[in-house]
């Protein structure tokens, strides 16, 4: 069970959280005019990297905030977590 560092509550067990998949994919600007391709890309296409991954988590059983985590998908190491609006930290080497 992962230990996830909620930027508000600190490290908590994975069971308190809900996973939200890839972070920072953009909803197309002027989305009503977006092409089918751009819209489909936004709706369905997500990165699935082997290595460091920025992802969304919500502390459902705690403060109920959505936030971001940089996690390694092989080792499950978590480099950092940050709040919505924070500068995006660099991925570890």
């Amino acid at each position: 069970m992962l230990l996830i560092p909620c930027p508000y509550c600190g490290e908590r067990a994975e069971g308190e959280f809900r996973y939200g998949g890839e972070a920072h994919f953009r909803r197309p600007d002027n989305h009503l005019e977006a092409t089918d391709e751009a819209w489909a890309d936004y709706l369905f296409m997500r990165k699935n990297p082997k290595g460091w991954h920025r992802e969304r988590w919500m502390h459902l059983a705690g403060c109920r905030r959505w936030f971001y985590v940089v996690r390694h998908t092989i080792t499950h190491k978590i480099a950092t977590a940050y709040k919505v609006g924070d500068a995006h930290p660099d991925l570890p080497a």
Binding site: M58, R64, R65, W66, V84, G85
Partner: peptide
């Protein structure tokens, strides 16, 4: 609830 909070917290600040 989680879904609406998601939009409020991450998109519609």
């Amino acid at each position: 609830y989680v879904w609406i909070e998601d939009w409020l917290q991450t998109e519609w600040l």
